[in-house]
Design a protein around this nucleic acid. Structure first.
Lengths: 144, 144
DNA sequence: CTTGACTCTGTACCACGGTACAGGGTGTAG
DNA sequence: CTACACCCTGTACCGTGGTACAGAGTCAAG
């Protein structure tokens, strides 16, 4: 890496630190096609990145925060690169929204069931009369 | 299995069907200590179960429905078998309730963010002005 | 010239909750 | 007696999102 035309060569370690992810994670994303194969330094074989890879890593991180899986994130990245319309993106967002809401509903049913059981439990005494155990042993009806 | 003293021997396949799980799942639970090692038919080596194993499998299924992991479920089963009090059970339920509520909160933040983005998206036109893409590319503030 | 930090490839491993074989033996009905 | 369903053990594999090596090469500073 003696080519000083590039004042700062973006090695994998540098973009990892910039994007706040691990080096192994970047290589993993590359294998999983979330990142394109980067240019290589011809002499060392080291990966050479541009600033855009940092943005791409941040894109991935934000998609994760929005509940998208890596597979879905890859599709979003592909959409961005291709000839998608804004409507396609909105569809993806709405599908994910539905997904999230279903998961919230599932959790809410569980929350209600647990709340009911906790409140029914005296919290003292043996297990013979414990409503939580009774529910686990014999079912607890429909909690939704 | 020629011992006809037992009119119906509960083989692994039978309790699997009764409990609505797969045969492999039962052997997996046994390895994971959720089920005790059953008696064996001396001549064939086949596992021999009693009705109580079906209840135990249903216990596991209900604990799953309440959001307990297999590890936690194993602990619940151990509590049931040991000298636990009702209060211990209630604690487990309340801890799980907190866990579930945290997960709901996380999902709600995501829901809000996705909703905001979906509503902001015109749904037509190219990607240049898509707020969803903009959010993924540049962050979307705190969505909670 | 050596040392230490960095990078490379390849592979194995983690949790989670199972599922799917392969290659045997067993049990029962016709 | 044969066919077929069932059971056994052991091991590998699935998806999800990485993490952790080993063993080698490279780069920059002192």
């Amino acid at each position: 890496m003696r080519d000083s035309a590039q004042t700062t060569t973006l090695t994998i370690g540098k973009i990892a630190r910039s994007a706040g992810v691990g080096v192994e994670t970047i290589r993993f994303y590359e294998r999983e096609k979330l990142l394109p194969e980067p240019a290589r330094d011809p002499s060392s074989g080291y990966r050479r990145y541009t600033e855009s890879t940092i943005s791409r890593l941040q894109f991935i991180a934000r998609a994760k925060e929005l509940g998208f899986t890596l597979r879905e994130t890859r599709e979003l990245l592909d959409l961005r690169a291709g000839s998608a319309t804004c409507g396609t993106l909105r569809s993806r967002a709405e599908e994910k929204l539905d997904d999230i809401r279903r998961r919230i509903q599932d959790l809410r049913r569980i929350e209600q069931a647990l709340l009911t059981l906790s409140e029914a439990c005296p919290g003292a005494g043996g297990l013979e009369a414990c409503p939580i155990l009774a529910a686990l042993e014999g079912g607890f009806g429909d909690a939704g």
